[in-house]
């Protein structure tokens, strides 16, 4: 059985697709067969971030409508043979996704894959609610900014009440906080909510902090998941996040300013 992860946030532009691409690649690179699905029907973009936009033939909606098989629609990543991408459709039909259809696709994928990463669209419409409906784990991507934090809390409410696990009275979805676009220097100046602030408000388990980084735009420009940029801070942050998710004990990084990080390292804090 596969473990289904939804990457969600409510608010747009916080880094869901960047995160989906990075953690899917990270899990695959660790040797786990992973599929990453774009649920943003109508506004497909995961293919572009993954760098496989010219290899899209069939998509999620084609599979749901039996116009293509899953194997025809899955795109095998050229950098990692454990990673497969299922693109979203460009249709403007809002009813293209159905609970039964998505359930069927996920069930079929579950037989063959270890992890299924669902890249949720922004908002709380069907694509977003279906991306989270079948999830086992939720990665809540949040920026240290008021509207993002509020929307994340809203998504937590939906996760706990409108998922398959909630409806069946099963163990609830495991929720994790991924705080992205973090600037320790601005936090120090009192201009930005701190990790502790956001954790206190949302009471979520912190999986990792991704610093505001130029490498993210560079990665998306070239269609490479940022986790493959091993020199970059964001890439390292995602590598840590994948390791922590897999149960490894990695101390949190990128929370303090660069200088202070070195200082505290030297003095064993």
């Amino acid at each position: 059985m596969a473990r289904i992860i939804v990457v969600t946030s409510g608010k747009g532009g916080v880094g869901k697709t960047t995160t989906s691409a990075a953690i899917a690649m990270g899990l695959a690179k660790r040797g786990h067969k992973t599929a990453v699905i774009d649920f943003d029907v109508g506004l497909r973009n995961l293919d572009l971030i993954m760098g496989c936009e010219r290899r899209v033939v069939y998509d999620l909606v084609n599979v749901i409508n039996n116009e293509a098989t899953l194997n025809q629609a899955l795109i095998k990543d050229k950098r990692c043979d454990q990673l497969f991408i299922l693109p979203a459709s460009q249709t403007r039909d809002k009813d293209a996704l159905t609970t039964e259809g998505v359930g069927k696709v996920l069930e079929e994928l579950s037989k063959d894959f270890k992890y299924i990463v669902c890249d949720s669209p922004a908002g709380i419409e069907r694509g977003a609610t279906l991306a989270m409906y079948f999830a086992d784990d939720a990665f809540v991507v949040t920026n240290p900014e008021v509207s993002s934090v509020r929307d994340s809390d809203r998504m937590l409410g939906i996760l706990s009440s409108k998922s398959r696990r909630a409806e069946k009275g099963e163990e609830p979805i495991k929720e994790y906080l991924l705080l992205s676009r973090y600037s320790p220097d601005r936090v120090k100046l009192g201009e930005m909510l701190s990790v502790e602030d956001v954790q206190e408000i949302l009471s979520l388990h912190l999986l990792g902090v991704i610093p505001e980084s130029k490498s993210v735009l560079n990665a998306s420009n070239s269609g490479t998941p940022v986790i493959l940029d091993e020199q970059s801070d964001a890439g390292q942050a995602y590598t840590d996040i994948v390791a922590r998710y897999l149960g490894e004990n990695k101390p949190h990084r990128f929370i303090d300013e660069e200088k202070k990080g070195l200082f505290s390292k030297l003095f064993g804090r």
Binding site: R150, V187, L193, S194, D197
Partner: peptide, 21 residues
């Protein structure tokens, strides 16, 4: 001259989130 806007944000969010929950 530099007010701490982060603590203002936290305060506003705590009230709002508690109400919405």
């Amino acid at each position: 001259s530099k007010p701490n806007t982060a603590s203002l944000a936290k305060e506003r969010l705590q009230i709002l989130v508690a109400h919405e929950r």
